[in-house]
Design a protein around this nucleic acid. Structure first.
Length: 281
DNA sequence: AGCCAGGGAGTCG
DNA sequence: CGACTCCATGGC
């Protein structure tokens, strides 16, 4: 943690390497940050913070030096993205995807937040997922500061009456949220249990939750449990993979398939030319 | 006005 | 297994 230093009201991290907060927060992996000019305000793991970049440095307002390990891990600053991107760039499509968002990193977010968030994502789109997560926090989360709500605890979501979810406007997903929250609250499904399991078994356990299928489980594994080899396959990605990688990812991407896929996902969703190209796959 | 969204459960063959 | 349908809601 020698790269971190305390400043007035927050902390600073030197020499982050490839990092662009906008690309990290708005590529469909995180849903609790908002952009204000050059700042990004959000709530993660019980902490409300403001992030901004100054050249190759990162400033986190509202964080203390003792929180540095948390943010180091959250932003994956302990990963060598320069080296990883070099590997991705051996493939022509991924080279374009990396060039399109060279500051994209796959975040390591809190397990329970990812479980509930990606349950909400089913048959849904990113702008609305963001709204539903925010309303879920407003309805069931602790108000940390005025207007700033923490992500709800498993207990709170498990105990709530189903009718109490009306303001969230989550539709039929409420049943799934509550069954997942109940399993976590009961200790049947916890981060400790999942982390002790090999990836296929962890995925199988996640899929026993009502409302959690292969896609949601893969997102939880990648974004919430740090399993970087897991590549979440939605309809778009299946098409894109069939087109660009009919034989799967090449061997030299072993271990970072999920990260590779997140670059590809962001690329084909936000680059008009790539989107058009992907449609006729 | 419709179309469709980072899906999954239920049903039927 | 694979192909279907329905689900609740609202960005665009």
């Amino acid at each position: 943690m020698e790269n971190w230093e305390a400043i007035e009201g927050g902390v600073r991290r030197k020499d982050t390497g490839p990092l662009d907060l906008r690309q990290c927060f708005f590529c469909g992996q995180a849903f609790r940050f908002s952009a204000f000019e050059t700042e990004y305000r959000g709530v993660v793991g019980g902490k409300a913070v403001v992030l901004l970049q100054q050249g190759d440095n990162l400033v986190i307002m509202g964080a203390a030096l003792e929180d540095a390990p948390f943010w180091e891990r959250y932003l994956a600053l302990d990963e060598d993205y320069a080296a990883m991107q070099a590997a991705l760039c051996r493939n022509p499509v991924l080279r374009r995807a990396v060039a399109h968002a060279p500051g994209l990193r796959v975040l390591r977010q809190p397990f329970f937040e990812m479980l509930i968030t990606f349950i909400l994502s089913q048959n849904n789109h990113i702008p609305r997922i963001t709204g539903m997560v925010e309303r879920l926090c407003q309805t069931f989360g602790e108000e940390k500061e005025i207007g700033v709500f923490l992500f709800p605890t498993p207990q709170r979501l498990a105990e709530a009456a189903p009718e109490a979810f009306a303001p969230v406007r989550a539709g039929y997903r409420v049943k799934a949220i509550q069954s997942a929250a109940q399993m976590v609250a009961q200790g049947i499904l916890t981060e400790e249990i999942l982390q002790a399991l090999p990836t296929p078994e962890a995925k199988a356990l996640l899929c026993t939750v009502y409302g959690v299928g292969p896609k949601v489980a893969e997102c939880v594994l990648l974004f919430g449990l740090g399993r970087q080899e897991v590549a979440p396959m939605d309809v778009w990605m299946q098409r894109a993979m069939a087109r660009y990688f009919p034989k799967g990812f090449p061997r030299y991407l072993k271990g970072c398939e999920g990260i590779a896929q997140q670059y590809l996902f962001h690329y084909i969703r936000t680059c008009p030319a790539a989107r058009k190209e992907g449609k006729r796959a």
